[in-house]
């Protein structure tokens, strides 16, 4: 079954006058997004650096095989073995919009720009991560095998 997520929101005018950034469209197949958001595979080494960078927020809630940092969260599952548990297609959809699997989840939707309340003025209309950042992180998480 193929859902077409129509996420091209270029014409969506926001209340504060800014416009939502156009997101690239993607196809959800089953419980994942099989195709890369950029059309190319991500870079796992860049992905690891992104996961460890607090500004992407991953490390605030998750822990993982990162011996170099003490500052890891325990609000969310340890990322060790994530590549065994999920396919790249599943990892991609979990990053893009985890709320599809659980509406109550505290995991933000990293590639979404609608249905949000009181977003900071300078961030309105923008997704948390770019398509290439998502792909880099997906590529890295896929390498996390026990």
């Amino acid at each position: 079954m193929i859902h077409i997520a129509a996420l091209i929101a270029a014409s969506l005018a926001l209340t504060d006058g800014t416009r939502a950034q156009a997101l690239v469209s993607y196809n959800i197949v089953g419980d994942g997004i099989p195709e890369s958001l950029t059309g190319a595979p991500g870079d796992a080494a860049r992905g690891r650096a992104l996961v460890l960078d607090r500004s992407t927020t991953c490390i605030l809630c998750h822990s993982g095989p990162f011996p170099e940092t003490r500052f890891q969260g325990d609000l969310a599952p340890d990322l060790t073995g994530a590549g065994n548990r999920w396919s790249t297609s599943q990892l991609r959809l979990r990053l893009v919009d985890a709320s599809r699997f659980n509406r109550e989840t505290i995991m933000p939707s990293y590639y979404r720009n609608d249905g949000l309340v009181r977003v900071g003025r300078n961030l309105a209309g923008k997704p948390i991560l770019s398509p290439s950042q998502i792909e880099d992180i997906v590529a890295y998480l896929a390498t996390l095998r026990d």
């Binding site: 605030l60 609000l75 505290i106 933000p108 009181r118 977003v119």
Partner: peptide, 23 residues
């Protein structure tokens, strides 16, 4: 829930006060 991260105060301070955010 609010902000780009789409979190409410209650998500952390009622539901997860026994946990750690970045340690």
């Amino acid at each position: 829930r609010q902000g780009q991260l789409n979190l409410a105060c209650t998500n952390c301070h009622d539901d997860n006060y026994d946990k750690h955010l970045a340690g």
